[in-house]
Design a binder for these strands. Structure first.
Lengths: 153, 153
DNA sequence: TAACAATAGTACCAATTGGGACTATTTGCA
DNA sequence: TGCAAATAGTCCCAATTGGTACTATTGTTA
């Protein structure tokens, strides 16, 4: 890796460095799940979203993940076809469907979670227990308001 | 945004949360640069890499960014065509070209940097000056070894 | 030095992607 | 109530993408 041309102790390019880290984190996770389980990036996103957030519709998944809605729609259709999730009518809004994982979907989620846990271990290795808690706290402090960041500017 | 179904003070899903943050950070930056300057994601990646790292060849950019080499090749060709960078022969290895930004390329880099700086400001807003330094230090501690993480597993 | 492996970069092309149009339904409001 | 605007989700299709094969050059080994 080429050395950097700016002081890494400065705050410069902090968002870019975060993005490089995220790319290095997710790349192998996606490749493994694609190869072993035939799950696309969006299949994984949707499955996780239905498991760890309170989202129950495609639209809520779009809002949480920032993925295009047709990509989410495709992933939902594909997961349903393979028996990982069910769609049933939302009585209060007939445009929308309530989504829920099947037993099979929950099993595939467990497999997904295992990948992430392993990768988390690798990532946190350089930090002490106290540093891990600190980093987590600061990350949450940044990430929580990020849902409301402007789309432009 | 749907509420989470796990304790956000635990370390669970820390890599995923990092990735969601990165997606929310980069999405608008890429959209803006694409729309205003006609720069693709990889155009931006290459331009930044040539500016803030010591990379001077396509291969070094591939290693730093983890992008596929044909995507980097394409971006380099497109940036050259538009006069943002020059390729000149590497005397010591004729398979490879030394890459360098033109004056025009450095101007477009300044525009790119402005977007990132603005976005960084938004991201760091919830943190105190001390917390910003702490977060930056811990991020570097994690990100530096990430170049050597295994591709699989 | 011949033969073979490894590497930088490009070209090709099938698969994926996501913007935008479209349908169906719901909401806001005069 | 009626009508315009907004919203959930799907579909179409052109553009993008990235795996693979390829060329050219360099490194390695006997």
């Amino acid at each position: 890796m080429p050395a950097l041309r700016f002081d890494p102790n400065s705050l410069a390019w902090i968002g870019l460095r975060l993005t490089v880290l995220s790319t290095r984190y997710m790349g192998p996770v996606n490749a493994l799940l694609e190869h072993d389980q035939g799950l696309s990036r969006d299949d994984v996103t949707v499955t996780i979203c239905l498991s760890i957030t309170k989202a129950t519709s495609a639209q809520e998944i779009v809002r949480y993940t920032g993925r295009p809605k047709n990509s989410v729609s495709r992933a939902v259709a594909s997961l349903e076809e393979r028996g990982f999730l069910r769609r049933h009518a939302d009585e209060s809004d007939r445009r929308s469907s309530r989504l829920s994982l099947t037993a099979r979907g929950r099993r595939i989620f467990d497999r997904i979670a295992t990948c992430f846990v392993e990768r988390d271990g690798l990532m946190l290795e350089p930090l002490s227990p106290q540093e891990r808690r600190d980093f987590n706290r600061l990350l949450n402090k940044i990430a929580t308001p990020s849902a409301d960041w402007p789309e432009r500017g």
